[in-house]
Design a protein around this nucleic acid. Structure first.
Lengths: 154, 154
DNA sequence: ATACGTGCAAAGCCTTTGCAGGTGA
DNA sequence: TCACCTGCAAAGGCTTTGCACGTAT
């Protein structure tokens, strides 16, 4: 798979070894595109296949993969970092998040309307953007339906 | 001052007492519009006038004021929460942040281009936005100049 | 009297680090 | 050999909580 080999290439470029623990963590993210896993969740999932992996290894691996640009760290203001994979097909800079404040599920959307704004920030304020994040907090369709049902009853 | 009385009104509506500690913390934010203070910074600043205030009181007050919508909590991914005041003149939803990754200063900008996008998210995906945050990370004008100077020298 | 507010210390969470013991090149 | 990697336990940093003591209403 092209995406996998690109991940391994990036690992090699970082002069790092592909240990079983690291491979399992990478596979986890490849098997779940579009998911945003916390360190705790990664630990739980990997432990199904590698019982003795420690949290320190998980954190060190997540840090390494983030540094190699294989993962991206995201904060959704719930006090813990989450990670998602950076496949070559994924343009990180045109991909943002909708966080449901009820079920905490995260949806994504593509949008490039920030580019013109970034150009204006450079021209008008001298601020050169290297990264950005846009997050919407609200209620997703499913939770809106549930909420509506609850209100009817009361 | 109209802004001050609005803050006090919101405190009363919350059925909360205006203690000297709380008043000092509120004044801190009113005297520094546009600043984004961490709990530690608030503690340091208030201690100049109220030596014995404890961190717990600072945290409890910041939590209270956030709940009363007098302050707003913000995360800039540096591992600590920051707070800014919500004056009635400030439209929280059209005010975003540019975070300099070198000097860590935060600038603000006004922009309302998100509204049409929010309408589309509701229409196309059923997601009803209640809050959003847009942050740009990059280098500010001053740091860009310093950097340029350094490069010329090397 | 009673509910509220405070400072202090302890505990909680998430995350990082030190260390001794492996393992691959 | 030697650099790298790991699990465990301990420590760090930010934040919350328990508690006994005050203080307003």
């Amino acid at each position: 798979m092209a995406q996998l080999s690109s991940v391994y290439r990036r690992l090699e470029e970082g002069a790092k070894r592909l240990t079983p623990q690291r491979e399992l963590i990478i596979k986890l993210f490849i098997d779940r595109p579009g998911q945003h896993l916390s360190a705790e969740e990664v630990h739980q999932l990997v432990r199904r296949e590698f019982r003795d992996i420690g949290m320190a290894t998980v954190y060190r691996t997540l840090e390494l993969l983030t540094r190699l640009d294989i993962l991206q760290q995201i904060h959704f203001n719930d006090g813990r970092a989450r990670y998602e994979i950076n496949l070559e097909t994924t343009d990180v800079h045109r991909h943002h998040h909708m966080v449901c404040v009820r079920c905490h599920r995260v949806e994504e959307f593509q949008e490039d309307l920030l580019e013109q704004l970034e150009e204006r920030l450079l021209a008008e304020r001298g601020f050169r953007v290297v990264d950005h994040e846009l997050k919407f907090y609200g209620t997703c369709r499913q939770c809106a339906r549930k909420q509506q049902g609850g209100r009817r009853r009361s």
